[in-house]
Write a protein that binds this DNA or RNA. Structure first.
Lengths: 338, 338
DNA sequence: TAACAACATGGTATCGATACCACATCATCT
DNA sequence: AGATGATGTGGTATCGATACCATGTTGTTA
């Protein structure tokens, strides 16, 4: 393979000059610039970034560690990260942990070994172990979507508590008194916050929180369907279901269809996260929508700012608001039906 | 950051010995092995792979360059690649090209700069430009799913032609004489092969191929819906639709639902690729299923074998058979209905 | 016109690991 | 006993780029 020295020899300059030209750093006369670029082209020179990063101690690579690539929520987030990163000259590596702590830690190790400059992390749990591991190794981190206990890291997320509060309040205002929350894992902050918001809305409305059904499962279709089946067998059966995220909602819809229950006539349904238009028959789910793209983009900006910064400064905790979008799935006022 | 030299000093050995211990290469007495591992642990040593790869000229990193990460087809393929790769000690980087030639080339450049050892490539077109670029830079390649014109590369794919032939033959045997093929891009080999298989089945049955509707679009839900809408306005309207892949099928189903057409009563539907159970209401699509996981795994094995090989050998072209799975969406014999 | 900044280019050391070679020691075999 | 090969350890050069420092030229300003 041709190296920077080969190019330099061909162009009749020093290798450091070639480096300056291809990186647009330092000065270079137009004459030399042309000669170098010509040599690069003729020889099909591809710079070896390993060597460069080794010396400069900056790899210009970021990683997005997320829990489920197949979820449109994270697909959109990935675009947000990549757009901002590539604009700043960074490459992004995508890692999928499947909500598995072990996989997450493995990836963290591999990323550190490969000297990534920074990590956008969607943690699989609420502890800050991965965050600390990275920081101890000099890798910058931003936590997105989910909150971790550490105070010493930038965090960007949505207001799950308030979103859940609003969704629940809506259902209550429609006359529902028995609502089931089909949630994600209890140790994930978004699930915990949605649980809190749910309870608070019930309490504020003077409803008994103890008599509501709350199930903690996983943020997957399969878990959503399974939790819905459990709920349908309860007596008395809830009149409304609150799905913890988009995938749980899809599972819920499937279980309801299997049980020949209509939405919203037989069962009201609301959920977190909007689904891209292409994934659903037609938009009809009432949701607390999160500005995913903006969240991911903002997180990446924070990360890059910190990488560029010459000194340390306070960690930020940014919370985006959710937007309540009322569609058909939440139904109309129960009294109206009677 | 602690380096291998720091660890060596702490353990009272030479750095090369540390290298041997952590890589399990060469000899090391039990005593020294313990001392080194203890030092590694105490100091939280994380090897710098950039340095190692620079010297050894092997990064132990592979890349999977695919066209649509959000398609379950590729999600499964990704697992196939990763499983085989990690078993052999390789890390995998995932790249998504969105069927965009430019993006593909950009990724290829970045991957070469970062010295990946090999690439599993799902090409966005049928030319072999990316393959050649990689090979010229000493990066091994295996082409998966889609065929490229080059003879000098390992290729692994499914028998799209025969799969399409069987699906079409099935529709014909059910009495359909006017079938529309809603296909992917014409310059993608799988779409082209399915087109050929489609035509061959029609010809073999003595049907006029010219009078059938064939539309080339994209392998997406949106395109599937759009093509279906076009077809529904035709006179005479086809009685069966052949979707070029799973996403096109989902778009088709949506368009049919919007048009209040029932499947299979009002319109028979068949497609390529099976969908994971979790994505559909209930398995009811008649499909030509492809062994995606096996295909991806086999491709990765070929790649790794070639990386381990000490000499060159003939390139392989492996073709997996498809499996016809008949479900409800293809309907029953038309005469039966009358 | 002296002084100083901006422009332009190169020499050399170095990042952190491993390749390669060298050199002991020890057990085993004829 | 000497040869042979497996075992065990280290010294030094090197991968390909960039950091840092040095040096010369040109233009500009007081």
């Amino acid at each position: 393979m041709t190296t920077i020295h080969d190019v330099a020899r061909r162009a009749g300059v020093a290798s450091i000059t070639v480096s300056r030209v291809i990186n647009n750093s330092g000065y270079a006369s137009e004459d030399i610039r042309q000669r170098v670029l010509a040599a690069v082209k003729e020889m099909g020179y591809v710079p070896n970034r390993l060597a460069g990063s080794l010396r400069s101690k900056r790899s210009k690579v970021l990683a997005l560690v997320m829990t489920d690539i197949t979820n449109p929520f994270f697909t959109v987030a990935a675009r947000g990260v990549e757009d901002v990163a590539s604009r700043a000259g960074y490459t992004v590596i995508f890692c999928n942990t499947d909500e598995d702590k072990q996989k997450e830690q493995n990836y963290i190790q591999v990323l550190m070994q490969n000297q990534v400059d920074g990590v956008v992390l969607v943690p699989s749990g609420s502890d800050s172990e991965s965050v600390e591991t990275l920081q101890q190794n000099g890798v910058q981190v931003v936590v997105v979507d989910r909150h971790v206990s550490s105070q010493k890291v930038d965090q960007v997320r949505c207001d799950s508590l308030n979103g859940a509060y609003e969704l629940t309040k809506l259902l209550i205002s429609l006359g529902h008194t028995h609502i089931a929350l089909l949630n994600g894992p209890q140790n994930v902050s978004t699930a915990a916050d949605r649980f809190t918001g749910f309870n608070r809305a019930l309490a504020d409305a003077g409803l008994d929180t103890a008599s509501q059904s709350v199930i903690f499962g996983a943020f997957t279709r399969a878990s959503g369907a399974e939790m819905a089946r459990q709920v349908l067998e309860m007596t008395p059966r809830p009149s409304a279901l609150f799905a913890g995220n988009n995938f749980i909602a899809l599972g819920v819809l499937r279980a309801l269809e299997d049980a020949r229950l209509r939405v919203p006539e037989d069962m009201a349904v609301v959920t977190f996260d909007d689904l891209p238009e292409s994934l659903v028959i037609s938009p009809f789910l009432t949701v607390a929508a999160q500005p995913v793209y903006e969240m991911a983009a903002r997180a990446t900006e924070l990360l890059i700012e910190r990488l560029a910064a010459t000194q340390v400064y306070d960690f930020q905790d940014i919370v985006f608001p959710t937007t309540l979008i009322v569609r058909k799935s939440s139904g109309v006022k129960i009294e109206t039906l009677k």
